[in-house]
Design a protein around this nucleic acid. Sequence first.
DNA 1: ATCAGTTGTCGCATATAATGAGATTTATAA
DNA 2: TTATAAATCTCATTATATGCGACAACTGAT
Lengths: 272, 272
Amino acid sequence: MTSLDKMLGILDLFDDDKVGVQLEDVMQLTRLSRATAYRYLQSLSKAGVLAPATGNTYVLGPRVIELDRLMRLTDPLLTNASPVMHEVAGALRINFMLCSYYGNKVMCADLAWPDESLTRFYERGRPMPMFRGAMAKVILSNLTPYQLRSIMLWHADEIRAAGLGSNWDEFRTTMSRMRKEGCVVTHGEVIPDLVGIGAPIFDPDKRVLGSLVMILREETFAHSGEELMRRHVIDAAVRIDAKLASVAEKTGMPALPARPRRGNVLRNGGAA
Amino acid sequence: MTSLDKMLGILDLFDDDKVGVQLEDVMQLTRLSRATAYRYLQSLSKAGVLAPATGNTYVLGPRVIELDRLMRLTDPLLTNASPVMHEVAGALRINFMLCSYYGNKVMCADLAWPDESLTRFYERGRPMPMFRGAMAKVILSNLTPYQLRSIMLWHADEIRAAGLGSNWDEFRTTMSRMRKEGCVVTHGEVIPDLVGIGAPIFDPDKRVLGSLVMILREETFAHSGEELMRRHVIDAAVRIDAKLASVAEKTGMPALPARPRRGNVLRNGGAA
DNA sequence: ATCAGTTGTCGCATATAATGAGATTTATAA
DNA sequence: TTATAAATCTCATTATATGCGACAACTGAT
């Protein structure tokens, strides 16, 4: 572990219950001297990632907000897909979620939540499971064979536990079948009593960018007719694909932001 | 400049027009070898701050969104002040902005924008000037003498340019007067034709957390009566202070997140 | 599915640059 | 203002980041 990694490890100290880190925390984490712990905190503070606070603590800094703003501004998924999602959700009075794929994580990127009778379990920035739920499966199934192979290599146990196959051939077959279906329907895999209907969103090069997911109660789902709902989701996703393609056309391909990809996964286990 | 700083410097490469960095950019920035540039990118990617993307580029990663979510969840300003601001803005049909103070930066934390006839110049995450505009001045004027002194030491020219005083005594006097006023009114200092009326927001220890700013056109301002508008802003700010205090009471002081502070300013020029 | 070309990683020797201890300065609270 | 705690600096030491070249992983074209 390099000093770079140790410094970045400080970010791991933050979670929902810990809003500020103290020198002690850093010393304990890194096993480094007081002076060096301060040096790390200083570097992060200089970059604005942390900010010194009262009470000998350091809190997350303004840079985080700035960078998040940049992402919101430039994420093709947010800028193109969100409007479509909100429109469709509003018209149908059904809840939707937009998920983004980041090489090793599936994250909720945006919500359209017209049906307030359902609690907003999800929220922007919350990490989603990788092998459970429509949002994840629809993305997984549209990855390249190469990507799938490396994921299998490192997450065989989780894949088996999720019932996606106990070996490479089974996994591959399951994924292939899901992909051909055009969308994935899951029942209570993330939250009990909720059905997710997910369709993939592709960039102009046909790489999967993320997923659009309809979320409804089992009861509503039963009344609405599966076929119809699937069509709604797929149609919306296709509209988004077209929008992405037309933007790419207009701006001349290269201007479209590059999309996340797995790193050198066979070596690092998909940590990147 | 340490290697830690050089690595974090990679974040500077991103801006509104640059959504992905390439190896070349990093090598040029750091003047380091190909291998080391990759090492930096790898560390940042492992931490999720960056994500490898197609086209040999690295984009901002999911960690940024996660950390931003944490900040939104725990920022006392957002959780306490936003609801009050939205309520007041809605009732008056006047636009408001909530600004946060981060030791060396003033940033827009949230907006309530009921009057859509004004363009939304501002947005969450956009850095604000430090010496211009009601949002900044109201915060500045409520810093401790110690903090003011160190700011004067490093930003004397900017302070003079902003007309806040050409020496320590003048600056101190100006700040003191503003503080006693209870709120600051500025005309077109950030955007022409817009008036800002800002009031400070304090934590239970009477330290300034940020500012609440009413934003209206010169014309509207003239019609509305300055005194009345000032009262509206101050009243809202006081309500927020009370809310913050009562939360602190209930949870038992220490649970209230610590607030940003300037680092060792006399040495590092307030970079932290 | 296989294969050439590109992008990313690794192993190792070397020297640079990070580290720890303690002195010193800066910040905060009384 | 002064006392106390927090943060930073100085400097000798050596651990560790660096660069080079070889190699592996990935991409996309056949």
